[in-house]
């Protein structure tokens, strides 16, 4: 109980710091701007396809372009890719700044457990990521309101985006815990996340033994079903386990630094 209370105190303080941070507002605005741009671009393409379908004689076997295939699925996949670039900006400061400014010393001499500290910081950055995601979900929500899109499909795709956000945030947390330089933490988070994201494309070149492993390491593979509306337990287990491992790694690193 005390661990949770302390973690929430840390989250509250982190959110107070984020509220006055120009970086947080810039990332939030940039993310929503890009999300909006891609959404309206996809919608424009869909409208064009629809117009072509209506105007041109219908070919045998061709079907009416649907919103899910032309707008919703690619939009949520783009959101995941955008989050990969946004996460380093919101996570790079969490521990690196504390160590750089020396406030880590004050946290270290407090009876706060390392688990509370890590959990509190993670909750704060994840909250910001959720806020960004919720803003970007407003575009497909409007689409759902004015069309016959399935709500369950949107929820499933939104879960895919939130899971990816949780993953990229934990990667950022680990790298921020490892260094006292924000730029280094941000750069390392971006590189690691990119490698993880594109790992599925390396599956063919690593041989049959590791092919499946490498293929399944990528969040692209793991979110494929979710974005298509199929919720799978194994996909959720992948995200939960990565987040837990990331949190454990951060606790281990921060504990070690506190004891030094």
């Amino acid at each position: 109980m005390r661990t949770v209370r302390d973690a929430l105190s840390v989250t509250r303080k982190e959110i107070l710091s984020l509220v006055v941070s120009p970086v947080a507002y810039s990332v939030l605005a940039g993310f929503l701007l890009l999300a909006g741009y891609f959404f309206f671009n996809l919608l424009g393409t869909y409208n064009l396809k629809l117009a072509q379908y209506v105007e041109l004689p219908v070919k045998k076997g061709s079907s009416i372009p649907n919103l899910q295939e032309w707008v919703v699925e690619p939009y949520f996949q783009i959101l995941i890719f955008l989050l990969l670039f946004a996460a380093p900006f919101i996570t790079m400061r969490v521990f690196a700044e504390e160590k750089r400014h020396g406030t880590f010393v004050l946290l270290s001499v407090s009876p706060l457990t390392t688990t509370s500290l890590v959990l509190g910081k993670y909750l704060a950055v994840f909250s910001l990521a959720v806020l960004m995601c919720l803003g970007s979900f407003s575009f497909p929500a409007f689409l759902w309101f004015y069309s016959s899109l399935e709500f369950a499909l949107l929820v499933s795709a939104a879960v895919a985006v939130l899971c990816s956000a949780a993953l990229f945030c934990v990667v950022g947390l680990v790298f921020s815990a490892l260094t006292d330089r924000q730029i280094l933490a941000g750069g390392a988070t971006l590189c690691f996340s990119l490698v993880l994201y594109f790992s599925h494309s390396l599956a063919d070149s690593v041989g049959p033994t590791f092919s499946v492993l490498v293929q399944n390491l990528s969040p692209v593979t793991q979110t494929e079903n979710l974005v298509h509306g199929a919720v799978s337990l194994s996909n959720c287990a992948y995200f939960v386990s990565i987040v837990l491992y990331g949190l454990l790694a951060s606790v281990f690193v921060v504990s070690y630094q506190r004891e030094q």
């Binding site: 005390r2 209370r5 302390d6 105190s9 840390v10 509250r12 303080k13 107070l16 710091s17 006055v20 941070s21 400014h101 020396g102 406030t103 010393v105 004050l106 946290l107 001499v109 407090s110 009876p111 706060l112 509370s116």
Partner: peptide
Amino acid sequence: YLPEHLPLYPELTVEEFLSFFARIRG
């Protein structure tokens, strides 16, 4: 503990700073 060079959270007010440390110190 008061270290030789007191590190602060520049973005917090004095009240917020003290409230935060009060909470995490039980």
